[in-house]
Simulated scan of single mutants.
Amino acid sequence: MSRMVSLLSCCAALVALVGSFGGSSVSAAEQWSAEKANEWYDELPWMVGCNYAPATAINQLEMWQADTFDPETIDIELGWASDIGFNTVRVFLHDVAWKEDPDGFFKRVDKFLEIADRHGIRSMVVIFDGVWDPDSQAGPQRRPRPGVHNSGWLQSPGRYILSNDERQDALEPYVKAVVKRYANDKRVLIWDLFNEPCNTNASSYGPLELPNKDERAERLVRKTFAWAREVGPSQPLTVGFWQGGPWDDSEKLNLTHTAAAELSDVITFHDYGDEDSLRGRIDALKTYGRPIMCTEYMARGNGSTFRMALPIMKSENVGAYNWGLVAGKTQTNYPWQTWQMPIMGEPKPWHHEVFYSDGKPYSQEEVELIKQLTERGK
């Protein structure tokens, strides 16, 4: 027995030694400890910013495809973001954009990160997205439907891929290529592997959705964590909580939320509710003992406002990403219910977004509050 133990110890030491000379260590394939995650977070300033797509793009494909990539607009708009104190953005990629043109795709992502960095902005990069249109196609994208919230946003991957194990597994090269390229890039703050994976889009594309989407999404969530950890990025990984709850009760989490809770290095969540909702969700997520970042909030008509939410999140040291920056082709300044009844004319109040397309703030009072809290006014 002693000889066997000695042999196993030698093998373990050899594995550790080999791993130390590779692109990542053996520990890179494991979830970060809470201690490591909190040490990482403690070195950051308060991270505050927005979910970002340029006003000239209706969706992720239009943002990243060669014919419609718009660095000039991105530069101008991220300048407005920086001017009010935003130091981070959450930005969505798309597997189809990579598949159609991997080299060009990476050149465009490089350019985006270069522009953002020049404005003092670090990026939370989203790999997959489970929200809105489940059938994406490369090439020219549709025009916005007048008066409708996010009428052209795309899921990534689409339902055809999500529904099948082999097609899901074929996404491994995409995930690994993206994470490997930026694994040690300081401009990338954190990897958000899958946005709202199990969203059934009931108010929009519900009849087209997979009836077992939670099950199918959970599989891809777990695979994506595994693929990313094999690369061993220096940044943490996360998938956010976004519905249901209470989130501190494991027996009441669905499959994808369970995977997010078990595998995330940093806890992220969405909240578009009032003060009680926001405080309750933060309190529930504190039980995980990890850093907390709110990756979507601010829906004025729902009671989720800058005035209510930002002071709470600053006092709790919760990272804060409101949805939207500039009103444009996504039309997310219109409320969700416009899928049932479009609004002709400007919505009152705006649902999301901070600026008009010419840089004028929707609310000067809001902008002054943001600048005060980010200390941009000093």
Rank of each mutant, 00 (worst) to 15 (best):
R307V: 06
R307A: 14
R307T: 14
M308T: 14
M308A: 03
A309Q: 11
A309L: 00
A309W: 01
A309Y: 06
A309R: 02
A309I: 02
L310K: 08
L310S: 01
L310W: 11
L310C: 01
P311T: 11
I312C: 08
I312H: 07
M313S: 01
K314T: 06
S315L: 11
E316R: 14
E316A: 15
E316V: 06
E316W: 05
E316Q: 13
N317A: 09
N317I: 02
N317G: 05
V318F: 05
G319H: 00
G319A: 02
A320M: 10
A320V: 04
A320C: 07
A320E: 02
Y321R: 00
Y321T: 04
Y321F: 15
Y321C: 08
N322C: 14
N322Y: 06
G324R: 08
G324D: 10
G324E: 12
L325W: 00
V326F: 02
V326W: 01
V326S: 05
A327K: 09
A327C: 09
A327S: 13
G328M: 00
G328P: 06
G328K: 08
G328A: 04
G328V: 02
G328C: 09
G328T: 06
K329W: 04
K329L: 12
K329T: 02
T330V: 14
T330L: 13
Q331G: 07
Q331S: 12
T332Y: 01
T332G: 15
T332S: 15
N333G: 00
Y334V: 05
P335Y: 08
P335I: 06
P335G: 04
W336H: 03
Q337Y: 09
Q337T: 11
Q337D: 13
Q337W: 15
T338I: 10
T338Q: 10
T338H: 07
T338V: 12
W339Q: 07
W339E: 07
W339L: 03
W339F: 04
W339K: 04
Q340W: 01
P342N: 07
P342M: 11
M344F: 02
G345F: 01
G345M: 03
G345V: 08
G345A: 07
G345I: 04
E346N: 05
P347G: 03
K348T: 01
K348P: 00
P349N: 11
P349Q: 10
W350P: 01
W350M: 04
W350R: 08
W350N: 06
H351L: 05
H351K: 06
H352T: 09
H352R: 10
H352K: 06
V354S: 09
V354Q: 07
V354E: 04
V354Y: 04
V354I: 15
F355P: 01
Y356T: 08
D358K: 11
D358T: 09
G359K: 11
G359M: 11
K360H: 14
P361A: 13
S363T: 13
S363H: 12
Q364K: 10
Q364D: 13
Q364W: 03
